[in-house]
Design a protein around this nucleic acid. Structure first.
Lengths: 336, 336
DNA sequence: TTGAAAGCGCTACCAT
DNA sequence: ATGGTAGCGCTTTCAA
């Protein structure tokens, strides 16, 4: 492994000069610079970023810690973050907490000394104590969660508003018995969406105890929920799933069960992942601009790192909008 | 930022002892260890992985360089890689070459000193000179590409076999005039798939000059290809798209144009991204176990790093299988 | 403009 | 079992 010292020796200069030349600093004569560059090329020198990071006390890398790497939601999110980070010439270090609290702490700690800051999407349990982490002083932006004590800067989608919109919409399109498939109780968004659902159903349909099935936001749980529901024999005319993955699955299951989606049975989701536009009928959902969510978080973090942003209380909330598609075309015989 | 030196001082021991205790080595008395741990906790000490990496000459991190972070293919791939890497207690550093050759080189170099090895999915142009990279000695596994000079270990899906299977299948289901939407010419898989398509069509249908439209594997190009095709007035009864993203789009466009997918018009893709199962009718495609592709690559890299694998010539090829769904149910009036 | 040398925070070797 | 110390590869004062 060739080091800068070898390059310096080969070029017959000191490491200091070599370093300057290779970093494109001005105070190096043209001829020395050329000698050094030639030597570097001859030896196939590639700088060791690890060492560089250590001396410069910065890594030009930002860490991202997500509960999972699975599915389009995260894919889109990472894409947004990458876009922002890459535009600034920085790199992305990806951590995965795999949902567990312990792994989250571990993941955060593993980032120390390897990144300049963190974008993190913590489960609720972690969010509450996040500012307690030894890394407290560490630049950190929280995604879609209630920051513990409200102290950490955050970016989030207004889940409550989004869920209210979509439930309201279902009602307008004729739904009277709406079932909700919720996300995991450890997830802040899941709770917000469920709460909003209950509120609207209670207020508009006078139903204080609607059916709520517990899902987990992942593949498999939409289908499972629907099959439980069908077995139970409950009557219902619409399903509002906590996210699109479950909604799309629910839609497929209901179609298989013989319902005409959009006319006999309305289905809606949340997130607006790309998939939602491609299923047929298209899935009505809450468009939350996932890549933008990531992009905003990254920008905020970069500002934080540069010191151009206070490290407290900056909460950005994205207000989502409805994406209306065929899955809520309208219940055929509107019953009052 | 609290360092190990401060912890040592606080505990009244040397840094050496502190290091041992904190790394769980055996040769430390119980009492000293406790003193040190207490001191570390009191000071909120978090080890600096960057420095650690430097001394240990290893990072326990593997780098992944992809042409793009967009879409389900990469999402699934990363998921597979993560699964393997995480199982070994290591971390993932994500690089994005954004398709350009220059950025790829840059991305590779930026990894030096920050990762123990690289999984890379290079465009063709880069693949050929990859082993020339100064990082040559660096553990590296190539994904889905022809490794330059065939020297680098690789994992890939047998695109040719997959494409042959699916084209054959289209013919069996009655297709006689098959159109191909290809991927970008810079992509090895794209070329393999197109070649296989041409071969089968020539052999089985005696058509030496089938219609091939150029796409780019990304959103938008499936639709564009179909609209060009429809405008041209060409007759055709089946579309084989180079990947699922384009196939799904093509399917939607054709449906909008009034074709009954599966009976009047057959459509097939390649990859089997999750989306393919959810569209309706389901998309017939080549199932290539994307996560497994990533997992195998990661395992191979880890073996390489550990030195339990030679660094040359190890090529793993995954043989894909057909996933038959509604989009190729069968042409209604089978013409000979 | 150039060089010498002091670290960055940590681990691991060699003594004790 | 513990401590002293020499690096890991690089950047960056400070002098010359």
């Amino acid at each position: 492994m060739v080091t800068i010292r070898q390059v310096a020796k080969e070029a017959g200069v000191s490491v200091a000069t070599a370093s300057r030349a290779l970093n494109g600093m001005e105070n190096v004569t043209r001829s020395t610079r050329e000698k050094i560059e030639a030597a570097a090329a001859r030896l196939n020198y590639v700088p060791h970023s690890g060492a560089r990071n250590l001396t410069r006390r910065r890594t030009d890398t930002i860490g991202v810690i997500l509960p999972d790497l699975f599915g389009e939601f995260f894919s889109e999110l990472i894409r947004g973050i990458d876009r922002a980070v890459h535009a600034e010439g920085k790199t992305l270090l990806l951590g995965n907490m795999h949902g567990s609290q312990q792994e989250t702490t571990q993941a955060i700690r593993a980032m120390r000394g390897r990144v300049d800051g963190l974008v993190i999407m913590p489960p609720n349990s972690v969010a509450e104590t996040l500012h307690t982490e030894p890394l407290g002083a560490f630049p950190m932006v929280v995604l879609n969660a209630v920051p513990g004590g409200g102290e950490l800067p955050s970016v989030s989608v207004d889940s409550r508003a989004g869920a209210e919109m979509v439930v309201q919409h279902l009602i307008e399109r004729g739904a009277r018995r709406i079932v909700h498939i919720s996300g995991p109780a450890t997830n802040h968004d899941a709770i917000e969406r469920e709460t909003a659902f209950r509120n609207v159903v209670c207020r508009e349909l006078d139903n204080a105890d609607p059916i709520v099935l517990t899902g987990d936001f992942c593949e498999g749980s939409g289908e499972a929920a629907i099959s439980r529901l069908l077995e139970s024999g409950e009557r219902f005319d619409a399903v509002f799933a906590g996210n699109d993955v479950m909604a799309v699955e629910a839609m497929a299951s209901l179609r298989d069960a013989g319902y005409a989606i959009g006319s006999e049975m309305l289905v809606a989701g949340f997130d607006d992942i790309p998939l939602s536009r491609y299923v047929s009928p298209g899935l009505t959902t809450v468009h939350s601009e996932i890549p933008r969510l990531g992009e905003l978080a990254a920008h905020k973090l970069l500002a934080l790192i540069e010191g151009s942003l206070a490290s407290e209380g900056q909460a950005t909330v994205i207000r989502p909008r409805l994406a209306i598609r065929g899955s809520t075309a309208g219940l055929a015989p509107p019953r009052s």
